[in-house]
Structure formats: C-alpha cells, structure tokens
Write a protein that binds this DNA or RNA. Sequence first.
DNA 1: CTGTTAGCGCATTCAG
DNA 2: CTGAATGCGCTAACAG
Lengths: 342, 342
Amino acid sequence: MRITIHDVARAAGVSVTAVSRALNNKGELSPEKRARVLAAAEQLGYVPSGVARALVSGQTKTLGVLVTDNTSPVYAEILRGIEEAALGAGFSLLFGNSADSQEQALRWLDLVHAKHVDGLLLTPVQTDRRDVERLGAWGIPFVMLLRYFVDVPCDYVVTDNVLAGYLATRHLVETGHRRIGHVGGPPWTSSGRDRFLGYQRALLERSIPLDADLVTCDSFTIGGGARAAEALLRQPNRPTAIFASTDLQAVGVLKCARSFGLRVPEDLALVGGDDIELAEFLEVPLTTFHYPARDIGRIGAELLIARIQDGMNQVDLERNDRFKRIVVDPKLIVKKSCGCSD
Amino acid sequence: MRITIHDVARAAGVSVTAVSRALNNKGELSPEKRARVLAAAEQLGYVPSGVARALVSGQTKTLGVLVTDNTSPVYAEILRGIEEAALGAGFSLLFGNSADSQEQALRWLDLVHAKHVDGLLLTPVQTDRRDVERLGAWGIPFVMLLRYFVDVPCDYVVTDNVLAGYLATRHLVETGHRRIGHVGGPPWTSSGRDRFLGYQRALLERSIPLDADLVTCDSFTIGGGARAAEALLRQPNRPTAIFASTDLQAVGVLKCARSFGLRVPEDLALVGGDDIELAEFLEVPLTTFHYPARDIGRIGAELLIARIQDGMNQVDLERNDRFKRIVVDPKLIVKKSCGCSD
DNA sequence: CTGTTAGCGCATTCAG
DNA sequence: CTGAATGCGCTAACAG
C-alpha cells in the first residue's frame, strides 16, 4: 500500500492542505508546522504521486522521445544529450524507436499522447506527414531533430546536411576524382536528400556532370551501404570514389569493396558521414564529417522545455512565427579512407 | 482543451459509465448503445487519459529502464529488445542512464518511482546496494539485466560471463600463449568480475600461474581499454596476448598497441567481448564472444511483464523462492585479432 | 441493461 | 495562517 498525503497529515497532526503547502513550499504556513510536516514525510518515506499531480496540474513532467533507431550511434548520442537537459529540468523521458515506419511511429505517438507527455522530441518519419499532422491536431509542443520539413513551421535542430554533402564530395573532387559515386539514404528523408544535394552541388561547381548510374539510395545502415555499393561497383565503368551518406553505410561499402577485391583508398576512395566513435578504428580509418550529435539532442530538449514552461503551444507559435530553426555546421574530418594523403 | 469521457457521453447521449463500458468492452451494455458511443468517440477523436486511468487502477502501463550507457552497443541492443516486448504488451518505457553512478541511479529511481512505473528493468550500479534496497522497500517488481548479486534474490537475465572469459582465454592459451594479460572491467561489477574469473580459470586449468602484473581494471570503454593496455604494454616483460573484457576495451587496446608500434595479432594477440556489430570491420577484425543482447532485453521485459500481470510483488517472490535466473551461453567468434589462423 | 455516486491522490479555491 | 470542500478524468460498486 502506497503512502499518501493523508498518512502524512495524520502523522503530523495537520490537514492535507498543510502537507501540500509544506511540500510545495507555497501558500502560507507557519514555519513550525512546516517543519513538523517535513519531518513526518521524511520519516514515512513519503513520495508525492506524480500521477495524481499530473491529473490535477495537467503536466506530467515527461517528454516523449522518438528516434529512428537507438542502436545507431548518432541517435544514441542524441538520446544522451536529451537526457542531460531533461534530467536537469526534472523531466523524464518516454522513449521509442520508429524504425522509420510511419505505422510504428503513429502507434507510439498514440501511446504517449494518452500518457500526456508535455512535449515531444522526434526524428519524423518523412514518408508522409501523418505524424506531424497528428501532433499539430493534439497541440502538443514538439521539436524535430536531424530532419525537418521546409513547409511545416516548427522548431527544429539539425545539422547543415547540404554543406556536409558538399564538403565530403568537394574533398573527393579536389583529390582528383571525377567518377564519384553516391550511396544515399532513403530519398524521403530530408537528411538523405540534403546530403545528396550537397554532393550534387560539389559536382556542379566543378562542372562534373551528374551520372545517374553513380547515384544509389538505401537505408542508413551497414547493410544498406553494402547493397548500394554492390550496385555501384559491379558496373563496368565503376566509380573511383564514393561518398556514403553515413559512416554505417561507409562500413557497408568497405565490406562490399573487399568482396570485389578493391582496396580502400588505393582502388576506391571513400568518405562517410556522422563521425561515429569507431570511425577511426575501422579497417580503414574513415574520412567523414562531424557535427555535435549530443548537443543537438541537448539543445532540442532545452528548446522544448523552454516552450513548455513558456506555455506556448504550437498554435501560438504559428501565429507569432517565432519558431527556432537551429542549424549547426558540420566539419570535415580527414583520415585515411579518402586517400588524399597519398 | 482535452476532450474527456463526459464530452463523449454528451455527444452520444449516454452516461459516462456507458462510455467507459463501451470503450473497455466490459460490463453489460446494449450493442446499439455501444455502437453509438464508439462512433461518437471516434468522431470526436477521443483518447482516454492514461493519467486518470493510472490514478484509479494503480497501473501506469509503464516500465522503467535503467542502463549504464545507451551509447554502448550492448545496451543499445538491449533497449531494442525491451522495446519489442514492451510495445507488444502495450507498455511504454521510461528510460535513463546511470553512467554507473549510484547517485545518478538513485535520482532517476526516485523520479520514476514518483511516476508509478509498474516495474523496472535495470543494470544495477554495483558499487553499493542502495538502488536495489530502495526497490525492495518500494515493492516494485524488477528484473536485473547483465549483472546480478549472488545474495540478492530477484529475477535476472544475464550471460554466463565466467564461461565467456574462460572461452576467450582458453582460446589464447591453446594458440600457445602463456603470458596473457587481462583488461578487466570495473571490479565492482559482476560482469567484470565473472569475466576475470573465467580468465583465471582458463589459466589455472593449464597450470599457468596468475601474474598480478598482467591484470588491470578500467571502465568498459575505449578509453578504459587504452589506459589499461598502456599499463600492460609498457612493462619490460609484456604479455604476448590480451583478453579484454569488452570489444570497446579491445578497441582501446588496438589503439594503444599501435602507439607502441605493436602489430595485432603478430606482436600481440587480442580477444574482446560482446561481439558488437562493428567488431568485424575494425582495423583488425576482432575475435570475441557473442551472446544475444537483444534477446536478453526482450526476455527480461517479458519476464517483468509476466510478474506484473501475475500481480506478484517482490515480497511474494521472496517467500516462494520462485525467481527466474536466466543465463544464456556466450559463444566464441574467431576472427583475426587472436592470430590463431597463422 | 442503465445511470448515479464515490473515490483514486493531490492542489487549490474558499471560507473561517 | 488554516482546514474543509471541490474537482482533475476515469472506473467500479451500487442502486434502479
């Protein structure tokens, strides 16, 4: 049996109101009584029920966090960052993976909506917009991470993926490559598209025509990278370099290159993305770009918490056009896989 | 303004009880009314308040999950496994990292206790037992993952770490090594200790005396592995092989070996642990041991949910001595770092 | 079959 | 300063 405010009141010989006042330190109360209550509460090991508080206050002090896949190093980092900010502000985290499936995302969103999360941090599934539409309808404040929609006004924290793709590809161009393949991510994701746009821009800048045969798309995973690389490398006139959207995909490329008997970087230059912790310890240390994933999570959570505490809901924001769009710059990390030091 | 059961009742022209009955499909209710209620609820987009339900039922349909560090691949996998089982049963996950700090763990436990989690999955911080003692006092059902206490009766799901350490070390012995160093984990963790015990057993079996200079301990991270390896490799009579508790530590060993100009496996054989996804793609593909981390999470969650639904609390369990202690066997994965194929 | 009522634990009016 | 009373949204007796 859980002990309640009534038990404390009885033990301290006061009313429940007095207990509530003492514990929340608000309202008038004689110091003497306050002390008596606090002592009784301490002695009984009383813990106020968050559920009851939530029912009366309408605030659960809980944030929902929906990511694509927490086993991916980038999302794992983001989660850490979110936690840092949330715990500091007294918020708990209801966590879920979408696996980039809209159905799974919607199921999870329904679940946390029923649980009255005060706000939401999410990497949207961008195959369609049912998720963000639902959030809008519910009026729950939310902040997008890593991905955004140009025409959905909301807060988001992302890295400049166009710049990232550009830096990666330009580096390969400058190293002398002209047949540069691209292992892209799912085309419906803004991150995947933007990195591709950066790739395209770098080529354009040097007047290298875009060769459709050199552009592939697959999931942001090792397996996805391997499949995409397979399609690129089996071509008679195969690329001499590949820009893979993510380090995980780049690992897939490494694996595939090995099976083709190609050495990296001698036979195939390679640049990845995200700068995962293990990038420098791989078979071939990976040239990649870095951005502060943990900070993205932390900043997103801080922003969301500020929104919640300001009591601004999405509608208010829309009216005021006061959304924060935070974009952090990536920077190129040159290691061995691009072969530029040869 | 959130829409409530009263709104639905009014819209359908029935009492709130009727609505409750229709939605939960329990109690008597004419099919005709039921249909009318369901239609109204659907039409209004009504979502029952989990908070209110929790207050009355005493069940939040929420599980707490406390891991050491979600950025570590093993915990990330476990989290996935937990989610699989939890979502299927309609449970949400309140997530947190302890960073192996008892203070942080206790802070988080207080938080989720106030939120009335129905149960808890955790990797205990084993520096002391305040965490499990608190859980016992609260009477919240919990299941330990990856770590356990011999003298704390409770459910747990772990891998046989003694066997794991034994398999890893025996393999090195069989390859002809006699000076085998050990990069261990934090000595207060059961997983770290057990892997060391396995190491010790393998040596004993071959009558190789344990050399205290060859045993080091540090955190289960790349940095920890590098520091520990540094201590081992700078010795005049350095080991010819190292068994590192985890793959992450093994990566640290690789890094350190490189800085000493030692080639792996030619100058230094190496075996890691956990079989992280990237193990085979490292500078030197890692010989390691594997166990189903995701399954451990899933099984733990299933077990916990069964406990919750059976309504058995810790006290009942203690009386009945019916705790489940699930131990899954690890198996050795031979790659290149051990040098056995030479 | 149905609706009225009484809490779940708490914060917050509102009269004393 | 203080406490009794109200209600957050819902479920479960309880009477019709």
